[in-house]
Amino acid sequence: MSDATGKDFVAVVASDQRKAPVRVAFVTRRTSAQVKSQDEEVIQAFPEVLFRAAIAVQLLAIVLVLISLFFNAPLEGLADPSHTPNPAKAPWYFLGLQELLHYFPPVVAGVLVPTLVVLALIVIPYFNINVEAEGLFLKDRKRRLQIFWVSSGVLCLFLLLFDVIVALVPTVMTVALMAVAAYTPANTSSNFRRSLAGKPLSFWVMSWFLFELVVLTAVGTFFRGPGWSWVLPWRS
């Protein structure tokens, strides 16, 4: 909307009054925000959306029923406190944590890490850098680059010190991607690099968490054998 009229504000009226109630937006001159008051097409939740949801759920159910018809749920011998299987594994979604337990004392891997993860997840939407939702290195570039290199260096060194190669790999991957983002020239022709450069800090933290989660869980599930030693799943 242009403000060529020279007034303090522009009033906009939605055109289709039968579909949506009249909405008025006030935009003061001092703000630079652009407002597009174009209405989106909406549809009734019933029946279209509900039935689509039902179809999705049914398709999932069909897949699960097929799996259940052909693959039996695992069952082992009667629980026996005197016979510890080797290795004793937690459910798969905790195997990332169990993998960390292999490297760190239980207080760190079993208590501190999950607590921090949960806290971080809760805090993310309230995080102020997040709200800006702009590229991490676009503003205050020099200082942020310093902080980035120092902190990722310390983190990698720490993981190396504890010999946590499994957690180091995703960390290095994340750091590498962040470096690509950081040194992307403003006029790059690559869409991928441009989008990377525009990612905020929260994106990088979450992606790092995702990489770690996937790698640690996969390693714990498939690549760990007796005594938590390395095994290859295809060679049993």
Binding site: P47, E48, F51, R52, A54, I55, Q58, L59, I62
Partner: peptide
């Protein structure tokens, strides 16, 4: 329409 598809998946 969605309802017909729903019938088939059901």
């Amino acid at each position: 329409d969605t309802v017909r598809t729903f019938a088939w998946t059901s």
